[in-house]
Structures are given as structure tokens and as C-alpha cells.
Design a protein around this nucleic acid. Structure first.
Lengths: 256, 256
DNA sequence: CTTCGTGACTAACATATGTTAGAAACCTGG
DNA sequence: CCAGGTTTCTAACATATGTTAGTCACGAAG
């Protein structure tokens, strides 16, 4: 399935996609000088195109560049000895895949595209140069810390919420993140995840994810078809899943 | 129970405790100049003493200092609306509690001491000054990234491992982390956690944690009494829980 | 040396979620 | 328009873990 195929979202997505999603997200939170913005925008200028289900980077690798998502979705995951997979993050446009690798050396997990995607490859030397600018150093620092906050919320999701709450919570989170980069339309957005991928993210089974999705549809909380998620009653979904967007550290926004 | 009361570990712990655990950990991984070391050591000079079960910081607060664990244990956690608690990290000597708060603004979770503890309060201005030194900026950056890696491993633990594996994995992780700061003695170390705290960290129930601990003892994998954990067969525990220490990004060490 | 409170531990029973297996619906490529 | 691969969806059944409700052990405090 082409992740860009939803007619209702295509025009919107394409138009907004013109301005860097990274900048869109940052601007509401951190003040950026024009030069900093230009430098960030330049990062996305010559991205590599990748098909779905391609490895962006694998556990054990030591690249001398970092990857920045420009378009499409990817997932960070770890494999267990028995072949089970745990997804630990979904990466959407504007997300750095592996800012840490230049400091930590070796990747301790892998990253794979979920859709067709555009990924910028930024040389380590380039990153070092950018980090000279205090404004950008702060931006990278901020992005890393938000990623960390998302990981903590993810642990809560997997550890202490039941399947219904966890799925709802993840949907709310992805909705807000997509909104922050301008990729929502009302309460709809492209969610190009299979039920198996959702299961791997939440420590569940595809069968059980399916059961829960049916129930959510029956309760008119969502509709989810052809890779488009529509949250039909955001307030109720938020309440049912105990979602509080504070950990995303985005600007305050009213939400109807 | 006094967490320092174990005779076998008391002398050891006290002696090693004399040198900053933060420096002990960093030295094997990052090169540090003498001045940098001195600056880090100075951070721990005048810590605050706290009793067990005291809040170090609460969700929603915006302090203008950061906390550094000097002695004792603490836990990072989130509370759910229904009162359930999920612990997302255990903090041991040398760990920063909330390096992120100066950038992100507001705490999105709380931190509580588990034992009596010594905690250094470092003013934000002081942190800013330290970060001027490239070596120290790199150190803080590194510490944050390792924390993030630990979070990812934690998600895998909670999401895809059964209770037995998860508990074993956590024990291995804490063993290595304690070893990195010189607080192990053979394969024993102080693990001042109640079964309820273990449960809250792993998304389990205290009852079930108890069942699993019994089984681990029966299988002669561990002994765990009076706050002292002894791993009786490290190799087997590691294998049984699928533990791979790579994500801790410590120096390579042979392990018998 | 008793009392109290906390944490460890048990047992019987309940259930959310996993397992297996297959049918149906849906894309995609030819 | 068909063939073949995914993905969705169901159903029947299995089980790891949760729930409830205690007893027991032990250290701290008086």
C-alpha cells in the first residue's frame, strides 16, 4: 500500500511537507535564528529515497554519519534471541534516527523503514560543525531529551496499561506528534502501521491488537482503515487511555 | 532496614565510595583531563542527606538545579490515574536524576529515594559553567545517551520478556552498573529493593515477583536476602534472560 | 519482651492475553 | 482480470500473570 495514497491527506501532506518538519516542530518551542533555521533546512536538501522494510542501520554498526527522517515512517527495534521483536520508537519526519551513535560508538539496536521514505545522511563532521552553533547544540540536546521522555511514557504504556489503554495512548501520542509537524487534518493522519507492528510496539500479539481495534471501532472512538487513523472522539480516547501530552514538551495547545 | 548494614559489603562499599562513582564509571569509557575530574569530584562535595522514601523531585516542578546521586538508591517513576506506579529507572551513585530539566523546563515524572541517600544539588548556573568545558559537555551528553539506551532495554524487558527473564535481565543490568562504579564484591551487591518495587519496575505484581524469586532460588541462580543480591551463576542467569551488556556502553570487560 | 508495621510469602481462584490455525479481504504485479 | 502475497479478522483453546486475602517473619520502637 502506498502510504501517500489517501486522497484526503495527500494534498495537505505534500503542501506542508515543503517546510522542514523538524523546523515546524522546533519553532513552537525553541527560538531559532534565521541562520540556524537555514542550516537545519539544508540538512534535508538531498535525502536518500528508500523503499519500505529497508534497514536504515543495524545493531553493531558504527557509521560516521547520522540519519534524519525527512519523509515516511521508520521504527527503532530490538530483536530477541527467540526472534521476538520489540519496537521501541516510531520515527516520523523531523526525527533523528541515531544522534547518539557518534558519541556511543556502536548501535545497540536497529532501525528499519516502515514505508517508502526519504532519509537524510548527515556526516559526523557536518554534525560537529553544526554543534558549534550554541543554538543548534541546544536543539539537538532538546530533541534527544524529548526522545527520552517518550521512551519513559512508552515503558508506562507497556508495563502498566492494559491493551486497550496502551493502544489508545499510542494513538494519542502519534496524533500529537504528527500534529506538531503539520501532518494531521482534523483528527485524521496517516498511520501506516500493520497490526503486527502495533503489536511489536506494545508487547502484544497481533491477534489481540485486532480484538482491541474492533472494540475501539465498535465504541466509535476511532476509525482506522487503509493506513489512515481518524480519532472520532479525541477527548474520550484521551481519557480512556490516561494520555497527558506534557511529556512531549510541545507548546501548549488547546485541543477540541 | 539499613541499606548499609550488610557486613560483607559495608567496608568495601565505604572504601570505594571515597572516589566519586561518577568518575569511576566515566574513566573507563571517556578520557578525562585532571581539571575535568576535579570539577566533577567537586560536585559531590556537599551533598544533602535524605531519608528513604523522600521525594527528590516531583512531576510538574521546574527547579533551577539538577540532582546527582552520591550515595544510596532512588527511582524515577510515573503514577497512573488509578494509582498504579511504573518505575522507569533506578538511580545509583553517579547517576544524574534530571539533567534534562534545565532544557525541557517541567518534570514529566517524579523521583523518590529508596534508601537513605546523599544527593548533590547542582545549580543550573553551575551546570552551564561546567558545560563550557568541551570535555564535560561530552560527559553529560554521554551519560544522557546511556540513560536512553537503558530505557530502550527496559522497554524490551517489560514488553517482550516473561517475568522470569525480565527479573533476571534487570538483575544482570544492575549488577553490571554497580560493578562499573565499584560497588560489587564478587557477584554480590546491595540491591535494596522490595519485591513491590521490583514489580513496579517490571510491570508485574508483587505476588508474581515473589513466585519468580522462589524459582530462581530453587534453581540456584541467585540468593537474595536482607537487601543483598548474590548471583550464584552469572553465566546461566545471563543466558536465561537474554542479557547482552552492549547497551550499557561500558568498557569491554571479561566476565566469569 | 511486647507491640507494631512492613515486607515476604502462600493459596485458591479469575482473567487478560497468548497460541494456533485457518478463512476472508485486500493489494500488487503481471 | 488473475495469481500470489500480505494483512485482517475469527474462533477455540491454553496459560502466564493478576486478584484477593490472608499468615508469617522480622526489625524497630517503646
Amino acid at each position: 500500500m502506498d502510504y501517500m495514497s489517501a486522497p484526503a491527506l495527500k494534498g495537505e501532506g505534500a503542501k506542508r511537507g515543503a517546510v522542514s518538519p523538524l523546523i515546524t516542530r522546533l519553532e513552537t518551542v525553541i527560538w531559532l535564528g534565521e541562520e540556524d533555521k537555514a542550516a537545519l533546512a539544508a540538512l534535508g536538501e538531498d535525502p536518500r529515497e528508500m523503499g519500505p522494510r529497508r534497514n536504515i542501520i543495524r545493531e553493531g554498526e558504527r557509521p560516521d554519519h547520522v540519519h534524519l527522517m525527512i519523509e515516511g515512517w521508520a521504527a527503532r527495534y530490538k530483536l530477541l534471541p527467540d526472534g521476538a521483536r520489540q519496537i521501541t520508537a516510531f520515527l516520523i519526519p523531523g526525527d533523528f534516527c541515531d544522534l547518539h551513535v557518534t558519541i556511543l560508538g556502536e548501535m545497540d539496536h536497529s532501525i528499519i523503514t516502515l514505508t517508502r521514505a526519504k532519509v537524510a545522511y548527515v556526516a559526523r563532521s557536518k554534525m560537529d560543525a553544526l554543534t558549534e552553533r550554541p543554538g543548534l547544540a541546544r536543539v539537538f540536546w532538546w530533541a534527544t531529551l524529548v526522545d527520552e521522555a517518550v521512551l519513559r511514557a512508552w515503558i508506562v504504556n507497556v508495563g502498566r496499561r492494559d491493551a486497550f489503554e496502551a493502544i489508545g495512548h499510542l494513538m494519542c501520542e502519534l496524533y500529537v506528534r504528527m500534529k506538531n509537524i503539520g501532518l494531521t487534518c482534523d483528527h485524521s493522519f496517516e498511520l501506516p502501521l500493520t497490526q503486527e507492528e502495533l503489536a511489536d510496539a506494545l508487547g502484544l500479539t497481533p491477534v489481540h491488537v485486532n480484538r482491541v481495534l474492533q472494540r475501539m471501532r465498535a465504541e466509535k472512538l476511532i476509525s482506522f482503515k487503509a493506513g489512515i487513523l481518524t480519532i472520532r472522539d479525541y477527548r474520550r480516547l484521551e481519557a480512556a487511555s490516561g494520555f497527558n501530552p506534557n511529556y512531549l514538551h510541545a507548546a501548549e495547545r488547546a485541543e477540541g
